[in-house]
Simulated assay, not measured.
Amino acid sequence: MTASVLLRPAPPATAFLRDELLADRTSTLTRLYQRTFPMVRRHVLERGGTTQDAKDVFQDALVVFYEKTVSGRLILTCSPGTYLVGVCRHLWQQELSRRNRLPLSELGEAEEQLPDFAEAPATESAPALAVLDYVAKLGEKCQHILLSFYYFQQPLEQIAAENNYGSVRSATVQKFKCLERLRKAVRQALALPSAR
């Protein structure tokens, strides 16, 4: 029994871990990644995620871990790997809850509901809409995403890579948010003439 206790390393002190991170961040985080990521990947895959989802969750957890450790706000009562797995489980549960509230199929349905302004006839009560004018009023990132997808017909995989998103789903959600901002701006513009 004593031998098994001696083989199991004790969790490093938080101050020692902080010193390791400050001295050689890359090496310390790489070690943590190699030891911990397989457990996180298994957890995410067993609960309907992908390896990319696991990487995204682990990266977020690693940022939280690093910032808390370096700032001195983290007090470990377990090994760093156990702490990271716990944070990842929590983050994955949050992601699953978010996905259940807004399933991917709803994003596609919302796009179908967007009227086709190119075919809308110009009348005095509903002036011809220059959609690009409204797109130009969006932020630079939204402009890029919407034009890339709708005008240049780039695949979401390419848009995700160009904008440094962790997954295609992140790019899809961002595209949907930008589309909603565009729709809101157009609705407000259409409401203004009738309010006069």
Rank of each mutant, 00 (worst) to 15 (best):
Leu6Trp: 07
Arg8Ile: 11
Pro9Lys: 14
Ala10Gln: 06
Ala10Glu: 09
Thr14Val: 07
Arg18Phe: 03
Asp19Trp: 09
Glu20Thr: 06
Glu20Trp: 14
Leu21Ser: 02
Leu21Phe: 14
Ala23Pro: 01
Arg25Pro: 00
Ser27His: 13
Arg31His: 10
Tyr33Gln: 06
Gln34Glu: 09
Thr36His: 06
Phe37Arg: 03
Arg42His: 09
His43Glu: 05
Glu46Ile: 01
Arg47Leu: 06
Arg47Glu: 08
Arg47Pro: 02
Arg47Lys: 11
Arg47Trp: 09
Gly48Pro: 04
Asp53Ala: 02
Ala54Gly: 13
Asp56Thr: 04
Leu62Trp: 05
Leu62Tyr: 04
Leu62Gln: 15
Val64Phe: 04
Thr69Ser: 15
Thr69Ile: 08
Gly72Phe: 04
Thr77Arg: 13
Gly81Asp: 14
Gly81His: 02
Tyr83Thr: 06
Leu84Thr: 02
Cys88Pro: 03
Arg89Thr: 11
Arg89Gly: 03
His90Asn: 10
Leu91Arg: 14
Glu95Asp: 08
Ser97Asn: 09
Ser97Asp: 00
Ser97Tyr: 04
Ser97Ala: 06
Asn100Glu: 05
Asn100Val: 14
Arg101Val: 15
Arg101Met: 09
Pro103Arg: 02
Ser105Thr: 14
Leu107Glu: 03
Leu107Pro: 00
Leu107Ala: 08
Glu109Gln: 12
Ala110Ser: 11
Glu112Asp: 07
Gln113Arg: 13
Gln113Cys: 00
Pro115Val: 10
Ala118Arg: 12
Ala118Tyr: 10
Glu119Gly: 05
Ala120Asp: 07
Thr123Pro: 00
Glu124Asp: 10
Ala126Met: 08
Ala126Tyr: 07
Pro127Gln: 06
Leu129Lys: 12
Val131Asp: 02
Val131Ile: 11
Asp133Thr: 09
Tyr134Ile: 07
Val135Leu: 13
Val135Ile: 15
Lys137Leu: 13
Leu138Ile: 02
Gly139Leu: 09
Gly139Pro: 00
Glu140Cys: 08
Lys141Trp: 07
Cys142Gly: 10
Ile145Gln: 01
Ile145Pro: 00
Leu146Met: 09
Leu147Phe: 04
Ser148Leu: 03
Ser148Gly: 13
Phe152Cys: 08
Gln154Met: 04
Gln154Trp: 03
Gln158Leu: 11
Asn163Ile: 02
Asn163Met: 14
Asn164Trp: 11
Tyr165Cys: 14
Tyr165Leu: 02
Tyr165His: 07
Ser167Thr: 15
Val168Ala: 01
Ser170Pro: 00
Ala171Lys: 01
Ala171Thr: 07
Val173Asn: 01
Gln174Phe: 14
Lys177Trp: 07
Arg181Asp: 06
Arg183His: 11
Ala185Glu: 03
Gln188Ala: 10
Gln188Phe: 05
Ala189Cys: 06
